[in-house]
């Protein structure tokens, strides 16, 4: 009902405006003197007012939202990204302010006046060369800075990294950790996916045995971490806004992203004075109905706490009884490995 009322009011206002506009144009027309000079003066002044109020609002908004955009980066390369952002902001900011001011100011200053002659000024090579070269130099600088960072961020992860796997599916993330051996077991193929083997783990790979699935992401601070990103059905995107980490999860290929968390959740809570604060994992590629619900909490802890947490997990193979179940089937499929596994499990 209220909605209907609002619509009615809007329609009414529009009709009134319509009438005002029609009569004001009509009056101009009747009077026969279209005051082009006055009209241009009024509109030109409005442009100046817009420029001034616009800049004031812009500055106000920056202070108002300070600290909320580009939240404190929680990873090493995050600082690199923010540095590039600020660099781009600096140069584009100058261009933005100068060009907007010139545009609106010229429109106001050189507005129509009766009898005034415009300046016939069709070309000036010096000017044009200048405003080709200067942007080119600035952009070259930004490119060099940007690509240096880009290569650093996308370089291979250090040897001592912790690897974990995030698999996107409609509409959740499955998180798999390597367990005590530090090796993720291989995947056997999507055809092996079942309620007791959520991502199709190859149980024949010995390093699968101690892999565990986690509800949320837990990582140690200060250690390089590599996410191995997979997708089960459609494209998703693994996005950790606070860590400046984003990489698509693409069916059929494995993508990776490595980073070093620099601050624990507890420290961040203290810093922000917000005991309820959590780092979050989101999906950043439209994947269907539940796209906006693919959330996981990311907890950064000290290495000691991390070790304790890892030790407290139950291997997935144990949870689903992979090895007991497999035994009989495996013997048929592949006698040798089956027996070996059997021996190993016992």
């Amino acid at each position: 009902m209220t909605a209907l009322l609002i619509i009615l009011v809007i329609v009414l206002v529009l009709v009134v405006l319509l009438q005002i506009a029609l009569t004001s144009d009509f009056i101009n027309f009747i009077k026969g003197d279209d005051d082009e000079e006055g009209r241009s003066k009024f509109q030109g002044s409005m442009l100046m007012v817009f420029l001034v109020i616009g800049f004031i609002t812009l500055i106000w908004s920056i202070f108002y939202f300070k600290g909320r955009f580009l939240p404190e980066p929680a990873s090493e390369h995050g600082h690199l990204i923010d540095m590039n952002f600020n660099l781009a902001l600096f140069f584009t900011g100058i261009v933005f302010v100068v060009t907007q001011i010139l545009l609106f100011y010229f429109a106001y200053k050189y507005r129509y006046r009766k009898g005034r002659k415009a300046f016939y000024f069709p070309e000036n090579n010096k000017l044009e060369v200048a405003w080709t070269i200067v942007p080119a130099i600035v952009l070259t600088f930004l490119i060099v800075k940007g690509l240096t960072s880009w290569y650093a961020i996308t370089s291979d992860a250090p040897e001592d990294k912790i690897v974990f796997e995030a698999t996107g599916k409609q509409f959740a993330w499955v998180l798999r950790y390597p367990g005590a051996d530090g090796e993720l077991g291989a995947l056997a193929g999507r055809d092996k996916v079942s309620p007791t083997n959520e991502v199709g783990i190859d149980w024949n790979d010995p390093s699968s045995k101690d892999d565990f699935l986690a509800n949320d992401i837990v990582l140690p601070v200060g250690k390089p971490v590599e996410v191995k990103i997979e997708a089960m059905d459609v494209i998703h995107s693994f996005f950790l806004p606070h860590f400046r980490v984003k990489m698509d999860a693409v069916p059929g290929i494995t993508t990776r992203f490595w980073f070093v968390p620099t601050i624990t959740t507890a420290e961040m809570r203290e810093k922000l004075g917000d005991p309820g604060f959590n780092f979050e994992l989101a999906c950043a590629e439209l994947c269907g109905r539940g796209h906006s619900s693919m959330r996981k909490v990311v907890t950064i802890v000290t290495p000691e706490e991390y070790q304790k947490w890892v030790e407290a997990q139950t291997p997935y193979s144990q949870l689903v009884g992979a090895y007991e179940q497999k035994t009989s089937r495996q013997t048929a499929e592949n006698a040798n490995v089956g027996t070996a596994l059997n021996a190993e499990i016992n």
């Binding site: 241009s40 060009t99 050189y110 000036n124 000017l127 490119i143």
Partner: peptide, 30 residues
């Protein structure tokens, strides 16, 4: 693609500067 993308900003910038130069010292009917 970073290289070419940022390169495309140059002709875009030229056009903006040229529009501003076009209205400079004009007699602009608003």
């Amino acid at each position: 693609f970073v290289l070419f993308t940022l390169l495309i900003a140059v002709p875009s910038a030229i056009k903006v500067f040229n529009w501003i130069a076009t209205i400079w010292r004009g007699n602009i009917r608003l």
